[in-house]
Design a protein around this nucleic acid. Structure first.
Lengths: 117, 117
DNA sequence: CCGTATCCCGTAAGATACTG
DNA sequence: CAGTATCTTACGGGATACGG
């Protein structure tokens, strides 16, 4: 990995966005979900944001979007074949994130312990 | 990886910041660098931003900061022992990022080719 | 049901100047 | 040399209302 050609930012740019990791996680675990189902799984997201994040993931070929031409509308989202290559990355990040949470928690406790003397 | 306990965001929060990946990359490849050396390696970063990003990485225990009490001042930065656990994550992200750049590039070419017919 | 269109706000990040 | 301090700008994200 040479500093002149750092592609970490490229991966980051796909993943950043307040709701993207959780959206991907839901799609990885559920397979296929309708817009309304995703919305229900994330009560705090607004329709605008959900639409935006999904469009951006679609733009990067990570997810597939299938529109059923009917009334009322039905739109299904799923991880694309190519998008599945992201699973390893997400897993590694999740594992490191978990370990880091633990690390910082222990550090905090140690500090409190020291102060009690 | 359960959706209720997504820690991907935790890892992301450490890495986001316009200059953090490149700073880490330099420190991983060079070992130890002074503030001014880092600045020289990243001509476009302002002193304020460099300081801020370094402080945030230090706060998360990723890097060590050593101040030599002398005039003129000398401050050295390096990846902490704990911070080395990030290398795997960065490598995976870098590899996926490279592959993704290639993927999107090929997709673009394919599109242009189709339009020429 | 699955979106857009507006308006608004907080914060990341840049420019610039100053200091022990 | 290695930082602060101050001011300004850009943009992600939220609230709300409307539309096919």
């Amino acid at each position: 990995m040479k500093t002149e050609l750092c592609k970490v930012d490229e991966a980051l740019s796909i993943l950043v966005g307040k709701w993207k990791p959780i959206i991907l996680l839901h799609l990885f675990s559920e397979g296929t979900l309708r817009f309304s189902e995703l919305k229900r799984l994330m009560p705090n997201i607004t329709q605008k944001m959900l639409t935006k994040q999904l469009r951006e993931l679609e733009e990067e070929d990570i997810i597939d979007r299938v529109v059923y031409p009917q009334v009322p509308p039905k739109v299904e989202y799923s991880i694309s074949e190519y998008g599945k290559s992201l699973e390893t990355v997400l897993n590694i990040m999740h594992e490191w994130g978990s370990a880091h949470t633990k690390h910082m928690h222990e550090k905090k406790n140690k500090k409190i312990l020291e102060q009690s003397h």
